[in-house]
Computed example of a mutant assay.
Amino acid sequence: MPTRTAIAEDARIGAVVPEGEPALPPRISWGAVLSGAVVAVTVGAMLNVLGLAIGATSMEPAQPGASPTASLLGMLGGIWLLVANLIGLAMGGWVAARLSGTSDGTDGGLHGLSVWAVAFLLSAVLLGNAVAGTANAAFQGAASAFGGAAQSMTRGAGEAIGAAAGAVDPEALLDRLQRSLRSGGDPAALSPEQRQAEMARILGLRVRQGGFEAGQRQRLAELAAIEYGITPEEAEQRITRLEAEARDLAQQAASEARQAAAAASEVAAIGAYWIFAAMMLGAVAAVLGGRLGTRRTVAIRDV
């Protein structure tokens, strides 16, 4: 592809140079940026540990009311976390600009901005590893506990079955199970166990279906009338009241769920805004640290 050239309009200057020349060499030092990012993360972590130690020493469990409230500790902890990260990023930007050897303020600020980006990436990786390690340890502990509990339950169940095998007649147990599984027919001819089992089944179907199907409401009223010794009309009234209470409870639960979802979304939005503001302040602190770390040029005059 032919190279475009820029020819000076002045006839006395006959120099011809390619477009975009002269090309400036890159002026970023990745070694300085990585060093500054490590310094930023380390200083921030050190200051956060100091804040944790101060918060722990302020607690007075032996004296009721002497310890700071949870809201106050949370607010002070958030402020300390922000200040610690800003100090760490400012120091990291200063170190990066100083080690890069640049004497240009813009280059120093850009080195600080690069430190800010790399430091946040390092923090995310370290935090992710810490969370993954904690979750893995918790999972292993839960698995061990579950395995021990399962062995204990299996051993206990085996002992219980062995002890009951000699005391219970298998034929009588099978006959009782068959009688409890039968439903339908005249409610008065059923045993209390059978009536209660059928009422529980009908109520379970009512919850899953959202309403009674054909014949279920009348059957439930008949079973309730025989079981509790009341008239079918009174049983019908009780079922109607129960349905009204169930609808009210469902509406209240739905309203509370909507309110909880709205509160959760508001908290998430506020948290996202605070994180954005903290990242912006961190970028400003890193850039300022980079500009402060830029080497100064000194003019030397020949005498």
Rank of each mutant, 00 (worst) to 15 (best):
G74R: 13
V95Y: 03
E60I: 10
E213C: 03
V267P: 01
G31W: 15
A117D: 05
R4N: 15
E213S: 12
R238M: 07
V33M: 04
V131F: 15
M279D: 02
S255Y: 09
A119N: 01
G20K: 02
L220F: 01
M75C: 04
A214V: 09
V17H: 11
A214T: 13
G141Q: 03
W80M: 02
A143V: 03
N85F: 05
A188K: 09
G210E: 02
L205C: 08
P192E: 04
A172I: 08
V303W: 09
L122W: 05
L223S: 01
A163Q: 11
E234R: 14
S144C: 03
E9Q: 15
I270L: 13
E193C: 08
L47P: 00
A157N: 04
L72N: 04
L121A: 07
V83Y: 11
S67Q: 03
A142T: 13
G101D: 07
G108R: 00
R301A: 03
T134G: 13
E159I: 13
P232F: 08
V125I: 10
G133I: 14
A224T: 06
G184Q: 05
L76E: 06
Q252K: 12
A119G: 10
G271N: 06
M279W: 12
A189L: 08
G14P: 05
A244H: 10
G88I: 01
T231C: 05
G184H: 08
L181N: 08
R27E: 10
W30C: 09
V43A: 02
A261L: 13
R206W: 02
A262Q: 15
P64R: 04
R296K: 05
V168T: 06
L76A: 13
D302Q: 08
E222Y: 06
L81W: 14
A97D: 06
A6Q: 13
S67T: 02
A277K: 03
A235M: 14
E193V: 12
A224M: 11
A90V: 02
T240Y: 10
G105F: 06
L242S: 14
Q151D: 05
A32I: 07
G229R: 05
A286Y: 01
A96W: 06
M59W: 04
V41C: 06
R238F: 14
V16C: 09
E21G: 15
G20E: 11
V17R: 15
E245H: 10
L242I: 14
R247Q: 07
N129T: 14
A40C: 01
I202C: 02
G128V: 05
A167K: 02
G92F: 02
A225N: 04
A165L: 11
G210V: 10
G78I: 03
L288E: 07
L181C: 04
E60L: 06
D175Q: 13
G31Q: 10
T57H: 11
I7L: 15
E245Q: 09
L205Q: 01
A11M: 12
G14L: 14
M59G: 03
A56M: 09
I79K: 05
S152T: 12
L177P: 03
R241M: 15
I230T: 12
E159H: 13
G36V: 04
N85P: 08
R291F: 02
D169R: 00
V38C: 02
I270G: 06
T297I: 15
R12C: 07
I54K: 05
R258S: 11
G112D: 00
T231W: 00
A257F: 06
G128Q: 13
A37K: 04
W30Q: 08
